[in-house]
Design a binder for these strands. Sequence first.
DNA 1: GTCTATAAATTGATAGAC
DNA 2: GTCTATCAATTTATAGAC
Lengths: 226, 226
Amino acid sequence: MSDDDLPGVSPKRRAILEGAAALFMAEGFGAVSMDAVARTAGVSKATLYAYFSGKDALFAEIIRGNCRRMQAAAPPSFSSHDLPLDRALVEFGEHWLNFLLQPQVRALHRMVIAECGRIPELARAFYEAGPLAVRAWVAGWLAEEVLRGRLRPGTDPDLAAEQFLSLLRGDLFLRATLGLEPQANPEAVSALARQAAAGFLAIYAAIRPLASERMDSSENLHRHES
Amino acid sequence: MSDDDLPGVSPKRRAILEGAAALFMAEGFGAVSMDAVARTAGVSKATLYAYFSGKDALFAEIIRGNCRRMQAAAPPSFSSHDLPLDRALVEFGEHWLNFLLQPQVRALHRMVIAECGRIPELARAFYEAGPLAVRAWVAGWLAEEVLRGRLRPGTDPDLAAEQFLSLLRGDLFLRATLGLEPQANPEAVSALARQAAAGFLAIYAAIRPLASERMDSSENLHRHES
DNA sequence: GTCTATAAATTGATAGAC
DNA sequence: GTCTATCAATTTATAGAC
């Protein structure tokens, strides 16, 4: 069922999948012909149809394959136990935003949105492999932080995760999805992560700084983009 | 330049624009033929091409028209001066979410995302007429609230507006854009607006409640969805 | 301006030889 | 499995009569 990345897979199948993925991401599903797919992969159309029953099936397999890759690539590698909470939040935020703003990930998201009316299953698969999986991971992390006493007791980890991720997306995510953000600006990403972490901690931190300290830390963290 | 909604406009032009808009929103740009557009509008293809030079031009005019309509419909009608700040935030949040989650608005957003690779100008026009205009309006409002002393002095109105709107979008906005939210559930919208307002005030309210009061108000405001 | 009829190209998909 | 050659349908767009 899952052919991708395995060494024993037909090289033509790989060539078709990779070439077609690049075409679909660059021009969109509707604008790509099976003729172009075959030409790009260096095979004939008959061979193409020997591997995939049709254009929709090819598209679906590409989306599913990229969802698996997305699910595997998203979780961060750091352990939050070694860091102060604010540093850990910023670190995670930068990691996640850098992943999310990759052109291929934006292109995948765009394709799923464009075709969600015709093929709703793909939209659900994407949502569960992407946003939902990440939110679950963050919620688990935040639940630990509540137990460790670094977040306010009584915090709902799911809600907190949703709000943190929403703060992280900000307008940058909207613009990137609309193709208005050609390359991810590292400084904008860093600023956004710091702003989101500062906001999140203002809501959920177990120990609130006093008013005077608050102003200081917000001066440090709230550097504005653009 | 702007024909829409004016009474002196050719009825056939209107019929074409409205019919084509419905078709594009229902099936996507690529899946709709000019034949179907002409049939739906009750005109011949020759007439269709007499009004619009091609499929792309027709599409662009539909997007621009809907952007204007979106820009006109988004601002809320209430005056925040009559309400306590938390109520005003929730009220605005519900108003904006209800607007944003309309199927037509989601469909417009989807179409722009789907075609932003081919026609980048449309993505920019959409972003400026929609997200950017709303953020500017909210930033203006929040700047007033800072002056009135209901928000923390030193607050950056633009950043605060971005964060409030991000909290409002939450996961519901993502799901709706992916077509996973068939109809906007009024209770989910209301809950999301209350959660966003509570989070926003925890970051930016001028006067913080004491720890004990904080728990109470968060019990009231943080009702979790689904 | 509006129609009918049609051009000209491209589409997704297949038949049959090897 | 892989190719060449081709089908049948559909596509965008236009010519010419009224």
